[in-house]
């Protein structure tokens, strides 16, 4: 049976939208945009404190975007917590899976540390590192560890909000000392970026793992790695 809305009107509308989008995109890439911001950005990378251009944009040129993005992540987790408690975890894994998890989790944490460090000059950085930490948490949750290896609620709250706090405080302190909001002095840029990225990595990893649990962590967690 043909439903007119679903089978005729929406597809026709989408073809029209697609045509318009395709035409505009064609004109945009064949037009006179030239290098866009590439040349400007690449030229300033040496002044940014890191040599990986993407990290320069994320943590320096457009650091304010990244600050708000950490706030988005925090808002999502707080929203998830407001909706209820986490479901009871999975049953503890049998020895083979458990053994593999016990091997993999330290490796993931180690890789996260490497990702964080390498982001200064090669692809990598806080988000990739945070994602690895988060996946360590997911793995622990799947293997039946309570609360995905996350710490008690008090410390977890500190961990998930740390990224926003360190980022915002760094920005404000730089403003107070006269450099301007989030304007790093060139000599300190590298270390300030590393500081912010470290805090962001911990927050992102903890937030992703906590979001995976789907609700407020259980009242009596086991102590374990900070994943």
């Amino acid at each position: 049976m043909i439903r007119p809305l679903e089978h005729i009107i929406i597809p026709l509308g989408l073809i029209a939208v697609g045509g318009l989008l395709g035409w505009s995109f064609f004109l945009a890439v064949t037009g006179e945009a030239g290098e866009r911001l590439a040349a400007v950005a690449l030229a300033r990378v040496p002044d940014s404190g890191v040599s990986n251009p993407v990290t320069s944009v994320l943590l320096n040129f457009r650091a304010y975007d990244t600050l708000l993005e950490l706030a988005v992540l925090l808002a999502a987790l707080l929203g998830i917590w407001s909706l209820g408690a986490a479901a009871p975890g999975f049953q503890p894994a049998a020895s083979v899976l458990d053994g593999m998890v016990n091997g993999f989790v330290p490796l993931l944490i180690l890789s996260a540390g490497y990702m964080l460090w390498v982001g200064a000059y090669a692809p990598g950085g806080a988000f990739q590192a945070g994602a690895l930490l988060g996946s360590a948490g997911v793995m622990l949750a799947l293997a039946g560890h309570r609360n995905a290896g996350l710490p008690s609620e008090g410390r977890l709250r500190l961990l998930v909000a740390l990224g926003v706090f360190v980022f915002a405080m760094t920005g404000l302190l730089l403003m107070v000392v006269g450099d301007g909001f989030l304007t790093y002095p060139p000599s300190l840029a590298k270390w300030l970026i590393l500081l912010i990225e470290t805090a962001a990595t911990l927050s992102i990893g903890a937030t992703l793992a906590a979001a995976y649990l789907g609700g407020r962590p259980a009242a009596r967690p086991t102590t374990g790695e900070t994943a």
């Binding site: 290098e35 866009r36 911001l37 590439a38 950005a41 690449l42 990378v45 251009p53 993407v54 320069s56 944009v57 994320l58 040129f61 457009r62 975007d65 990244t66 993005e69 988005v72 992540l73 808002a75 999502a76 987790l77 988000f127 992102i204 992703l208 979001a211």
Partner: peptide
């Protein structure tokens, strides 16, 4: 061009959160 790459990274995190 590193700028769109950075925008995409930001966008991915926002999408994951939502």
């Amino acid at each position: 061009d590193p700028v769109p790459h950075a925008l995409v990274l930001t966008g991915i995190v926002v999408a994951v959160s939502a």
